[in-house]
């Protein structure tokens, strides 16, 4: 177990190094950092001095080492566009995005898994057909359409929910949360629903097909033959066996929810990282872009690590060292 965790941590470190190299390359070689930082009328001497001060004349490996050192300490440089340190910008934006995506993911799981179980257990009931049809719409409608329709209905026509922003936020130390105020909750409902809809449909359909599969297995038949209750068979024996693929997909999806909430954030003017990143692209704000890249990679690596550990918790077969061959 510990060997496994160490091995995985090592792999994660390797991935992060590679991503950092890409981030560094972007930072160093896409355009000239000095030219981006100074005004048109800066003299050549000043430019050379700045270049020297920034260490851009040092050997490349040294620069890379310094880049990594800074990154580990959370120093990501200064945004070309806004002129503030990138870590401050992210600290402002990250809570908004994390709250939105985690709430969306929670919504997708809490609603998607039970619906998947239901449609898997009773594939012929009309309610299952309704769920499946609705989920098909959830998958096929683009996110922005759902968002805009929601805004039209609940924001404009009914006037129940705010159409943009996060509402009031409360600062709790490092974190700027919207989940402690009524207006914060009102504001997050529609974006979270919009963002989670696709994931919900995906999780539901995945759970459903896994359930259908598992219910046909011998051990479920045998569990029935032992006279266990329906509840024990369905939720104890069947559902638990669907979890490994569901955890895999959900993990990946949570990662992409955080990283690519851009569209939803744009539609709802949600002050999150997605919006920051979009603006960074428009203005070729390289420090922000490369930081975003590293951050997203970090999030994916962390989630994957968690997913791998969850496998261990769920499936005892993985706990045996790989010596037996097969399973």
């Amino acid at each position: 177990m510990i060997a496994f965790v160490i091995r995985r941590l090592f792999q994660a470190l390797l991935v992060m190094l590679v991503v950092a190299l890409i981030g560094f390359t972007m930072f160093r070689y896409v355009g000239d950092p000095v030219a981006q930082m100074v005004g048109q009328d800066t003299s050549l001497e000043d430019r050379a001095k700045l270049r020297q001060d920034l260490g851009l004349n040092d050997p490349v490996p040294l620069q890379f080492a310094r880049f990594i050192g800074n990154t580990v300490q959370g120093k990501f440089g200064i945004s070309y566009r806004i002129g503030r340190p990138v870590d401050e910008l992210l600290a402002d934006r990250l809570p908004a995005t994390l709250e939105l995506s985690l709430l969306a993911a929670l919504f997708a799981i809490v609603v998607g898994v039970p619906l998947g179980v239901y449609t898997g257990l009773y594939p012929r009931r009309w309610l299952s057909h309704v769920f499946l049809t609705v989920s098909l719409i959830g998958i096929s409608l683009p996110t922005f359409v759902i968002g805009i329709l929601l805004i039209l209905l609940f924001g404009v026509t009914l006037g129940w929910l705010p159409t943009f922003g996060r509402g009031e936020t409360v600062d709790i130390g490092l974190w700027d949360t919207g989940l402690l105020t009524v207006s914060g909750w009102q504001s997050i409902i529609m974006p979270a629903f919009t963002l989670g809809m696709f994931q919900l449909a995906l999780i539901m359909r995945l759970v459903r097909s896994e359930m259908l599969e598992v219910l046909r297995t011998d051990f479920v038949k045998f569990a029935r033959a032992r006279g266990l209750s329906n509840r024990a068979v369905h939720f104890g024996h069947a559902l638990k066996n669907t979890l490994v693929p569901v955890i895999t997909i959900t993990g990946l999806q949570v990662g992409s929810l955080i990283a690519f909430a851009i569209i939803t954030e744009t539609v709802f003017q949600w002050p999150g990282m997605g919006l920051l990143f979009l603006q960074a692209i428009q203005f070729v704000d390289i420090p922000v872009m490369s930081t975003y890249l590293i951050l997203v990679a970090f999030i994916f690596v962390v989630i994957n690590l968690i997913v791998d550990l969850l496998y261990y918790v769920v499936d005892p077969r993985l706990r045996v060292e790989r010596s037996g061959g097969g399973h």
Partner: peptide, 12 residues
């Protein structure tokens, strides 16, 4: 049942 390899739930 026929196949003892699949009659038992692997996760319990």
């Amino acid at each position: 049942f026929q196949d003892p390899l699949t009659s038992l739930n692997p996760l319990y």
